[in-house]
Design a protein around this nucleic acid. Structure first.
Length: 476
RNA sequence: GAGUCGAUAGUGAAGCUUGGUAUCAUGCGUGCUUCGGGAGCAUGUGAUCAUGGGUUCAAAUCCCAUUCGACUCACCA
């Protein structure tokens, strides 16, 4: 059966497609802690593969740090601690014994990692230090959980770097932006690179860059962040090095991460009423081969499928010939569409006679008869088109959600109805930002970091001189 | 943290007002016929009706408590 809920009813569509598309099963006994199903997990593994490749190419190393964090670590950087308190889960008891000092289950790993960094870094020769960790993260306070969008336990990548100068740290921030651009391109995601306003930076950081995508219901989704931490953590965790001139200095730090939220964006931006649509670059299965058999006319069809499977595999694609006879061809079509497989190849008696296969594209639904001799040229061509087409469509969705607004009431109406991103002028006053938050449950997401944008008029809230062009949106 | 609603096979629902053998669809198993867009028929399988207590000859149904969940608002680096 197709999805019961159309994409136009996004909330229900999203819940349904997660299970039907074999991405997430929420029927666990723990709210907000779900099963990542094989199809979903393979996509996540692909995300890891892409990022690991980028990390290796830029001299990052992978490592793993403890899940447990002593309470005292979290309290050391008080701003950092206050930012996380409401959502930290604590281990207070082991067996029947109450612990003297309780452990937090990491809501993020700065403290435990920097405690180690302080012991590792002695000299300028130890810098830069660039370490990434793949880990699970625990954030409990959220009563309103949504699979992949807001979980109590989720998977992520967090990279933490140390440098000898502020200038180098700034360059590192830029490098991270390039790394994420490569990832988001592979996923076909569109997004805005925004510098968060000062009142919304990561606790303890100098400034934060965030990558905001948009979901079909018009809400912004942060799919990654980069923080320039400056020296605040270095100060409290005492991360120092001896420089070439013999003096002792504090390191400059950055950190950046992406989580399984990127899967949510992937699903929401590309999927349709038939199910998932996956870009070839991350699809667990790229080509599904379905035999068309009739009673008395099926000789050679199954064999032809298996031969074709071998050939397609040798050409470098992830392929499966589905020769099961307990499902009809139509059922299989629908099934691979639900799972998002980019291309389906059909072979029946007609194709055997004509030396052809029927190529069907998941993104457009086009059915294209292809001569066997031209199959691989065609496969390559359509894979490339699908990859580029999905990105283009995502860009159009994002563009469609961006509007310029210069009137407070209009902004309010917009945020309460279509939502999306509103580009407005802002005076920089936190009171005005609060005003927006209070009156339309939306927030100032920041200024563009990838392109320079100048204010074009007075502040949309107070009418004083606008000093920044900012984007307002309701967020997940 | 505030409010509203809810919990019945794997999934989705009906039954509750008026107490009495739990119904339907889908899924799953088996057999036959099928197969160029989620096949048809037959026959099986699967629910101590969220938990605990109360009323009653009798509770999915009425009462009380608890737990969990959904949604809206607040919060969400």
């Amino acid at each position: 059966m197709p999805l019961d809920n159309p994409k136009s009813d996004f909330s229900k569509w999203y819940s349904e497609i997660l299970l039907r598309g074999n991405i997430i099963d929420v029927r666990t006994p723990i709210k907000g802690a779900n099963v990542i199903l094989p199809n979903g997990y393979e996509i996540w593994e692909k995300v890891k593969e892409i990022l690991n490749k980028e990390f290796k190419a830029t001299n990052h190393q992978n490592a793993y740090f403890p899940l447990f964090i002593p309470e005292e670590f979290l309290t050391r950087e008080s701003e950092h601690f206050d930012g996380f308190v409401p959502e930290v889960a604590w281990v207070t008891k082991v067996g029947d014994t109450e612990l003297k000092e309780k452990f937090a289950l990491r809501p993020t790993s700065e403290t435990i990692m920097y405690h180690m960094y302080a012991q590792w870094i002695k000299s300028h020769g130890d810098l830069p230090l660039k370490i990434n960790q793949w880990a699970n993260i625990i954030r409990m306070d959220t009563k309103e959980t949504r699979p992949l969008l807001r979980d109590r336990e989720f998977q992520w990548s967090e990279a933490h770097t140390c440098h000898s100068s502020a200038e180098e740290a700034k360059l590192q921030v830029e490098e991270s932006m390039k790394i994420y651009e490569a990832l988001f391109d592979a996923l076909g995601l569109s997004y805005l690179t925004l510098r968060r306003p000062p009142h919304d930076t990561f606790p303890g950081a100098d400034y934060s860059i965030a990558y905001d995508s948009i979901l079909p219901d018009g809400r912004a989704l942060q799919i990654g962040t980069t923080h320039n931490l400056g020296q605040s953590f270095a100060k409290v965790f005492d991360i120092k090095f001896q420089d070439v001139d013999g003096s002792t200095k504090l390191v400059h730090q950055t950190c950046y991460g992406v989580s399984t939220r990127v899967l949510a964006a992937l699903i929401a931006l590309h999927g349709d009423d038939q199910g998932l649509i996956l870009p070839p670059s991350v699809a667990p299965l790229q080509v599904a081969i379905v035999p068309i058999v009739f009673k008395g006319k099926s000789e050679g069809v199954i064999e032809a499928c298996k031969t074709l499977e071998e050939e397609v595999k040798r050409a470098g694609y992830k392929v499966h010939a589905d020769t099961r006879d307990n499902y009809t061809a139509g059922w299989k079509f629908a099934e691979y569409e639900m799972k998002g497989t980019p291309i389906r190849l059909e072979i029946g008696p007609r194709d055997l006679k004509n030396n052809s296969v029927l190529l069907v594209r998941r993104d457009t639904g086009e059915k294209i008869p292809v001569n066997r001799d031209e199959l691989f040229t065609e496969l390559k061509k359509h894979m490339d088109e699908i990859q580029a087409g999905l990105k283009k469509k995502a860009d159009e969705i994002l563009d469609g959600f961006i509007v310029d607004i210069d009137d407070f009431e209009k902004l309010k109406t917009r945020m309460q109805n279509e939502r999306g991103f509103a580009r407005v002028n802002w005076c920089g006053d936190v009171a005005c930002a609060e005003n927006i938050k209070d009156q339309m449950s939306s927030e100032i997401r920041g200024t563009r970091e990838d392109v320079k944008e100048e204010p074009t008029g007075p502040c949309v809230v107070c009418g004083n001189k606008g000093v920044q062009r900012v984007y307002v949106a309701q967020a997940y």
